[in-house]
Nucleic acid binder design. Sequence first.
DNA 1: ATAAATTTGTTGCTGTGGCAACAGCTTTTT
DNA 2: AAAAAGCTGTTGCCACAGCAACAAATTTAT
Lengths: 220, 220
Amino acid sequence: MITNQDYLYSLRKCYLFEGIGDEQLSDAIKLLNGRIRKVEKDEFIVKLGGSLQNAGLLLKGRIESSFQNESFDQITMHTFSGGYLFGEALVINGAKNSPVQVRAVEDCIVLFIDLERIYTVTDDSPIRSVLVNNLIKSLAKKNLILNQKVRILSQKSLRDRILIYLKTLPKDKDGYVKIPFTQTALAEHLGVNRSALSRELGRMQDEGILISDSKRMKLN
Amino acid sequence: MITNQDYLYSLRKCYLFEGIGDEQLSDAIKLLNGRIRKVEKDEFIVKLGGSLQNAGLLLKGRIESSFQNESFDQITMHTFSGGYLFGEALVINGAKNSPVQVRAVEDCIVLFIDLERIYTVTDDSPIRSVLVNNLIKSLAKKNLILNQKVRILSQKSLRDRILIYLKTLPKDKDGYVKIPFTQTALAEHLGVNRSALSRELGRMQDEGILISDSKRMKLN
DNA sequence: ATAAATTTGTTGCTGTGGCAACAGCTTTTT
DNA sequence: AAAAAGCTGTTGCCACAGCAACAAATTTAT
């Protein structure tokens, strides 16, 4: 039996539960009718064109949302890990034809929840009003994330896509950023050809504007 | 003096007030501390990198949100008219550096509102709970709109961008769609070069897959 | 430890679409 | 009605990045 306690860390990271004390966490999850489910690597939680009944909260593992363009290239929307809420927009819109697919990249543990209970039921439970608040903020934040994606994809040159992407990543003290993907996956994130990406990264190093030792990069 | 009554039609179109009767509309607007302001053509409501204090509800006119890529091309995010709520995501996130600019394309009338009042104040006014519900749905819907934008920008070929865009527009009985932009503006929507767009539209007509008589188009 | 699978660098070829420039139209302004 | 501003079609040029193919390196599976 899997308990909430096992994943307290991920739950705490989730924006939806911000401001809700550890003691009330169980109540909140009960209120949302939370159900834990294992999802195996490479399993699709949402298929392209499919629908999703419930939003999910990722407790463990990594999940990726993506789609294909008309040339059948894979474009990654977002890769996320513990504490991430996904599928809210689909569920709230009652979308029948999902424009994205959602796939487990590793073995995952997901807490599925009935989001509607946050905003349709109208009692004045104090927990609910916190949840409402957090849900609104989550949605607004995801909006900005999507904006960022649009910004990357709007760049004309591959180099600009790389530069913008790198600027979003947090720098460590030496000014390096960690790339959380293989180069192949990075290409899918930036929506570019893999070998073209490799070539451009090489060029940038030749020109001296980029230092790159596998998985770590630094701009000048 | 401008009254709410003057713009009842636009207010009714706004998703935020769905399910709120005409009689209660004034109460709702009072609750949100609504203030009407004229915005002149070409005035910026949000500048790039700036911030926005209040969300706006467009009562009259047309507004466009856009940004520039690193090559200084103008990319249009969204053009909207009466009844549209904008700036929510910026306000809710408290964004200091707006990634987009918002500009009046025509002379506009805007109702600015204090969105926070919807979700921070915690009394159990029945109007508020409707507003909360609608705000959540609005945010989720905007999410899908952004998704659509990402989808267009992820296409490798100009033609695919055009095709996908056309498919989102509503067809009339003859299968024609109305293009609500000049070709120049359409190019900015699709994030492509204006003359390349013109060229490609020409090609498509030559190939017989598109019929186009100024402002109206039809696919085969 | 070995094999299998995946990732990465590299390179020649090629097509698409960006760019600039201009002429002809259309729309807006005065 | 005239002038100004903006939109559209067209064209030659060419760079960027997609593509395919392969070998080398790295990672994962058995």
